[in-house]
């Protein structure tokens, strides 16, 4: 066991638990921010300022009875939440969250703050995002309930539609970054224009960023695009029939997906761990700040905007967002050709 291998294992364990904790933190943030936006208190009783509320929720969920509809397909019913949760965690494996570091000289060789440095990282994220739809679709189908089935069908239609725009937004960043590796893309965003404006791709790709963010919200099934769940019309959509920890796994997957989408947006558009004041080795603090800001934006949007109508969602995806993304991609390609990468 070389020190580097041990450090790598430590990173895997830390990232996994950080994601679990971030999901718990997001539950708290979501409830507190929602409460603040609606002029109520939110959870304040469990722990200081209600900080232990998510853990109380998890304990409650663990002791709930695991129900399964009699007519459900038991194998797929059990498999669906596992697919959802594992896809959510797997996508984060290729996301870099800090510059190479030796931990203040603790290690001989510098270590990348990333679980796996894949040279096609952007495509891996896209591939795993496209696989995560199966969890929802299978949950909807195997529950053998009309609400679940409608939720599953809506979700597959929605994710197929928005995946295209999502991919186009990724592709336009790839053209500028001139690489498929997230580490290279982040390193391409260091430095400043005119000593003031950071060289983040959001300034080169404002349209791409908006398309990515919109498609990202749709991909994670968050309001205002939360049609697979849509409490008022579908009870809870694809997870109507789920209870106890299976339900918790869907819940977990949703929040981890949010974190992953925000982290990828940070790497692609917001300069990753690059930022002023802090040295390179503490860049992960900037990374956390940026991801946190995006996550807050997510929550803010959910409690501000009402849900679209379903046909509006499909029309928006195909008739506005996708053409916009295609035009943006073509303009970016022309720009890269003209100005050089």
């Amino acid at each position: 066991m070389t020190p580097l291998l041990i450090a790598q294992i430590v990173i895997v364990v830390v990232v996994f638990h950080a994601l679990l904790l971030s999901a718990a933190a997001m539950v708290w943030v979501e409830r507190r921010v929602a409460a603040a936006l609606q002029q109520r208190m939110g959870p304040t009783r469990v722990g200081w300022q209600g900080l232990l509320q998510p853990f109380a929720d998890v304990i409650k969920l663990m002791f709930k009875e695991e129900l399964r509809p009699k007519a459900a397909d038991w194998f797929l019913f059990a498999l669906a939440p596992i697919i959802s949760a594992s896809c959510a965690f797997a996508a984060f494996a290729v996301v870099p969250f800090g510059a190479q570091t030796t931990f203040f000289g603790l290690l001989g060789d510098p270590l990348k703050l990333q679980v796996a440095d894949v040279n096609v990282a952007v495509l891996v994220i896209f591939a795993i995002a496209s696989m995560s739809v199966y969890g929802i679709v299978l949950a909807g189908w195997s529950s053998n309930s009309k609400y679940s089935l409608l939720g599953g069908l809506r979700s597959s239609a929605q994710m197929i539609s928005y995946e295209l725009s999502y991919g186009m937004a990724l592709a336009s960043v790839l053209l500028i970054g001139n690489s498929l590796s997230l580490t290279d893309i982040v390193n391409g965003q260091s430095g400043y224009w005119f000593h003031v404006i950071p060289k983040w791709f959001i300034f080169l790709q404002p349209v791409g960023f908006l398309v990515y963010l919109t498609a990202g919200v749709a991909e994670t099934n968050r309001a205002p695009f939360d049609f697979p769940e849509a409490e008022q019309e579908l009870v809870a959509g694809y997870h109507t029939e789920y209870s106890s920890m299976s339900f918790a796994m869907f819940f977990l997957a949703e929040y981890v997906n949010m974190v992953t989408v925000s982290a990828v947006a940070t790497d692609l558009f917001l300069g990753g761990w690059h930022g002023p004041l802090l040295p390179e080795s503490l860049g992960w603090i900037w990374f956390l700040i940026k991801v946190g800001a995006l996550l807050f934006f997510y929550v803010w949007m959910r409690w501000t905007l009402p849900r679209y109508r379903y046909d509006q969602l499909m029309a928006f995806g195909w008739k506005i967002l996708l053409p916009l993304a295609v035009v943006n991609l073509l303009a970016t390609a022309a720009g890269v050709l003209y100005f050089g990468a």
Binding site: F126, M131, V133, G152, S156, I160, E163
Partner: peptide, 22 residues
């Protein structure tokens, strides 16, 4: 490898599943 997942497992099979479910 990744393209195989994106195109076949991710896009085409979702459509298959969609049709079978519908």
């Amino acid at each position: 490898a990744v393209t195989q997942i994106i195109v076949y497992a991710g896009a085409i099979m979702v459509l298959f599943l969609f049709v079978v479910m519908l």
